[in-house]
Amino acid sequence: MWSFPPAFQGRYVALEPLALAHLPEFLARFDPEVYRYLSRGPKEATAEALAAHLEALLAEPGRVNWAIRPTPALLALRPFPGLVGRISVIAPDPENARLELGTMIFRPFWGSPANKEAKYLLLRQAFEALLAERVQFKVDLRNERSQRALEALGAVREGVLRRNRKLPDGTFRDDVVYSLLKEEWPGVKARLESRLYGPLGRP
């Protein structure tokens, strides 16, 4: 059975357990563009819709969710107090040594170190503590920004799952699958640490 720390600390972000208590911060940051490609995103900027969205994330079997909070180092780059977004472990499968990561970053932090470091913290946990063989990511085929981010991370594009998920408006989305394998992690880790923390590559 895999277990995950309740919190992670990086230079730019801190991860804390996601809870309904974060609802006001999600409401304050609501932006339709952020939820545009999510298969279970809220349909409107109401407390009820966002609460239902968070409750669904928290109720999903096996899923582990963290809220992403900025540190002073990130706020020095992007002075927007409040949550950065969330990150989740989806469908962890210890028997087959694999898991999936899903991330949502609010618009003020797009292009900042937040997304990279949040993924870095969980990838390090997956490959170095849990000894995972594979970590995968799935994004909407239309979400080119997220695809470029995963490719910049070093994830390998595997293919497209056609009509894989139903969206809130009743249409279906095609998912692009990316992955990292354990033997790829050392190279990805070195590049991430260099980009995040400079030539010394240390948090």
Rank of each mutant, 00 (worst) to 15 (best):
R134K: 15
R107H: 15
P113Y: 07
A67E: 08
F172E: 13
T71Q: 14
P199E: 13
L131S: 15
E44M: 08
G62L: 10
W185T: 01
L180Q: 00
L50V: 11
V177P: 04
P32V: 13
L167T: 06
L54G: 07
E144W: 12
D140A: 09
D140H: 12
R40W: 13
R69P: 02
Q9K: 12
R69F: 10
P61L: 09
E183G: 01
W66N: 02
S88T: 04
A7C: 12
K119C: 07
L196F: 04
R145F: 11
P72E: 02
N96K: 08
Q147M: 14
F80P: 05
Y37P: 10
A21M: 03
L38G: 06
L18K: 10
R98V: 03
W66I: 04
F8E: 05
L122F: 06
A126V: 04
P17G: 13
V160G: 11
A76H: 05
H53F: 15
R69S: 10
E48N: 11
R63D: 14
H22L: 09
F106R: 01
E184F: 00
Y35T: 13
A67S: 15
P5Q: 12
W110I: 09
W185C: 00
G10D: 04
L101T: 08
P5K: 14
V34C: 12
A76I: 02
L150P: 06
E128W: 01
E100D: 10
A47E: 15
Y178K: 01
A19W: 04
L77R: 05
